[in-house]
């Protein structure tokens, strides 16, 4: 191989690695939590091993003593064990925690107009998993891909005249377009493809587009064919601690399609079936807060808790919006600091 070849191959590899990439889905905090768990397991294994060897030694020594095994246990066994006892395991300062945004949806192909670096949003919750992919320009093409939680086929719900129009099977499973009888693309800007995935769950693409940039059906079918399952914990810029037992996360979102702020992270908390939304975003206008809200500002971020007026009395029983807000901690605006240990 010549120097020129070497240089050309190096340049080509660099160009490939420098291509726009989706947001990273790993973080140091998760590795610290997992790493500590592995270290604790090793310590336990070491202790059990030493204890077993010690017990065998004591037993064997006792058998060799005059009087057979009836002699009192000897002290050195205890001191040998104490010598290898590790430091106490991590206490409350550990960052072990569970993620709140675990996407079960992977999409193997997206059209090249999607902004892969800044235009992909993730949501996951009791309903299933959802990915929104948008074009960089506001008001342009948008794809919402949903993988529902296991359950029956969803009903047609948008319009009474909606109809199923058979599509070619997706990966051998049932697929159909959801259409208005006289306007398959509704107001000429939408297209809905629904299909059953290999594991029997239902998935859907809801595509919207301007009239001048129709998303071809072939592209939607290709996206659908590339959809696979697979659990993936997505980092978020916040973590929650000390949640009351009656307050549990219902869904979580990292949204990059807002427009007024670069991104918005949301955790929806369920209290007896009613919802309170925790929102973290860089400073800017938040247009989708619920009518009753409280916010604080920290390190260039705004952290808000919001809900509907009729839910406020229920929220007050668990400390109110201000109390819930106190349970929210942020890692920072820099995505390299985001974490998947969100419930601690």
């Amino acid at each position: 191989m010549t120097a020129t070849d070497h240089h050309e191959l190096s340049a080509a590899l660099s160009a490939l690695a420098d291509e726009p990439a989706p947001p990273a889905a790993f973080d140091a905090t998760t590795s610290i939590a997992r790493g500590r768990a592995r270290l604790r397991t090793r310590q336990r294994v070491a202790i059990v091993g030493v204890a077993a060897v010690t017990a065998l030694t004591v037993g064997f020594t006792a058998l060799l003593q005059p009087g057979g095994g009836n002699a009192a246990p000897t002290a050195p066994a205890a001191s040998a064990t104490a010598a290898v006892t590790p430091a106490p395991s991590p206490s409350g300062t550990a960052v072990d925690g569970t993620p709140v945004l675990t996407s079960e949806l992977k999409v193997g192909w997206l059209p090249d107009w999607v902004d892969r670096e800044h235009g992909i949003s993730y949501t996951a919750g009791t309903f299933g998993s959802n990915i929104i992919a948008v074009e960089p320009k506001p008001g342009q093409r948008r794809l919402q891909i949903v993988l529902r939680a296991p359950g029956p086929e969803p009903v047609l719900e948008t319009h009474p005249d909606e109809a199923k129009v058979a599509a070619a099977p997706i990966n051998g499973r049932t697929a159909y377009w959801v259409e208005h009888p006289s306007q398959p693309r509704y107001d000429s800007s939408s297209r809905v493809l629904r299909w059953q995935t290999a594991d029997g769950r239902w998935a859907q693409i809801f595509a919207t587009h301007p009239e001048s940039a129709v998303i071809p059906d072939e592209d939607l079918i290709r996206i659908a064919e590339s959809v696979t399952g697979g659990s993936r914990d997505m980092p978020m810029p916040l973590w929650l601690s000390g949640l009351p037992a009656s307050v549990r996360p219902d869904s979580a979102t990292v949204d990059r399609s807002i427009g007024t702020v670069p991104w918005e992270a949301r955790v929806v908390l369920a209290i007896e079936g009613k919802m309170v939304t925790i929102t973290v975003a860089p400073e800017g206008r938040l247009w989708n807060l619920a009518p009753v809200s409280q916010c604080r500002h920290e390190g260039g971020l705004q952290i808000c808790a919001s809900t509907l007026p009729d839910i406020v009395p229920l929220v007050d029983r668990v400390g109110g919006l201000a109390g819930l807000l106190n349970l929210v901690h942020v890692t920072g605006a820099d995505e390299s600091t985001w974490t998947t240990s969100n419930l601690r």
Binding site: S31, R34, G35
Partner: peptide
């Protein structure tokens, strides 16, 4: 790649 890096840095931490 993300899964690989997550596992790699976990080993690195250990």
């Amino acid at each position: 790649a993300d899964d690989l890096v997550q596992e790699t840095i976990t080993k690195l931490y250990v």
